[in-house]
Design a protein around this nucleic acid. Structure first.
Length: 295
DNA sequence: ATCCAGGATGTAT
DNA sequence: ATACATCATGGA
């Protein structure tokens, strides 16, 4: 086991571990206290969160300006990357458009950062997210770990890694339905096969501009434009991506009716521009979380 | 019981 | 290209 502490006073802008992990942008971190996802008890200062993938377990907890970690290896750079700690959040917030909804959303959740989940787990989790409530999406990912992941030990406790592409490709549709995936079961299996085959990789997508990358991602089964945007934003660092989900579409109707166009691509362009362009995905995530926690 | 959830796919036009 | 029905599951 390895461990260490990251000083959060060295990064640009604030950081809040709880709101970052529990704002519905990642379904790959779990609270070590076993409490339900989205508890929002505001007392997560002592709560460890864990994630596991690629034979690696990571535990983190925040205490003020200290981010403690324990892991199977030295994961400092991984944590900095996955939790968006190298983003200049002060500059991003400063550059956000100045309208009432955005300002209120951004000011309500200081330290909310965009995560960079590992590609395959992010892809699978958002394929599972369609027509599904947030807490259940999280439970589905935990079920996939239990059924297909590898047990891995850290400091006397056993965790399960998120399954690798080959592990999920070997699942049957019947098995996946038994885990409660419903009609998403064949999507998950087929997409896992595609990733395992290596004919469409993360690096190919990363070499493409934003809109091309979104089109390419929809080649995966069960991935439409919205899920593609989520993967681009929450895994691949396309911070201009604005996933158009039901919450954001409602916000468009109420606050930005002019952005409502006849296609996903056009509406996306309009809202992306309205949300400031380069970091529109950040704005989208603040607004999404704000709308969801207000009602 | 009926409705709905961070939508995508298949089919018909 | 665009419109529409259909797709499981569990919680309210």
């Amino acid at each position: 086991m390895d461990s260490g502490t990251l000083s959060l006073s060295d990064i640009d802008g604030p950081f809040d571990l709880e709101v970052t992990i529990e704002s519905g942008q990642t379904y790959l971190w779990a609270r070590a206290d076993g409490r339900t996802y989205e508890t929002h008890d505001g007392q997560s200062g002592d709560v460890w969160y864990w994630t596991a993938y690629n034979d690696q377990v990571i535990r983190v907890r925040q205490q003020g300006t200290r981010l403690e970690w324990e892991a199977t290896d030295n994961v400092e750079s991984t944590i900095v990357d996955q939790l968006g700690l190298s983003d200049d959040l002060d500059a991003i917030v400063e550059s956000a458009p100045d309208d009432p909804l955005i300002t209120e959303a951004v000011e309500s959740y200081p330290g909310l950062r965009i995560v960079r989940d590992p590609f395959f787990p992010c892809l699978i989790s958002f394929i599972c997210s369609t027509q599904m409530r947030v807490p259940r999406i999280f439970k589905m990912q935990q079920s996939l770990r239990k059924a297909y992941g590898d047990p891995i030990n850290l400091d006397g406790r056993t965790y399960r890694t998120f399954p690798k592409p080959s592990q999920l490709a070997g699942a049957t549709e019947t098995e996946l339905r038994a885990l409660g995936l419903g009609y998403r079961a064949p999507y998950v299996r087929q997409t896992a096969e595609m990733v395992a085959s290596g004919r469409l990789t993360k690096d190919i997508i990363l070499g493409q501009d934003y809109e091309t990358a979104r089109e390419t991602l929809t080649e995966f089964i069960g991935v439409g434009p919205k899920v593609a945007d989520c993967v681009l934003l929450f895994s691949l660092g396309y911070l201009q991506a604005v996933p158009l989900d039901t919450w954001i579409r409602t916000a468009i109707e109420e606050y930005y009716p002019g952005c409502s166009k006849n296609s996903y691509a056009e509406t996306s362009r309009a809202l992306r521009s309205r949300f400031g362009g380069e970091f529109a995905g950040y704005v989208q995530t603040y607004v999404f979380h704000h709308l969801r926690t207000q009602s």
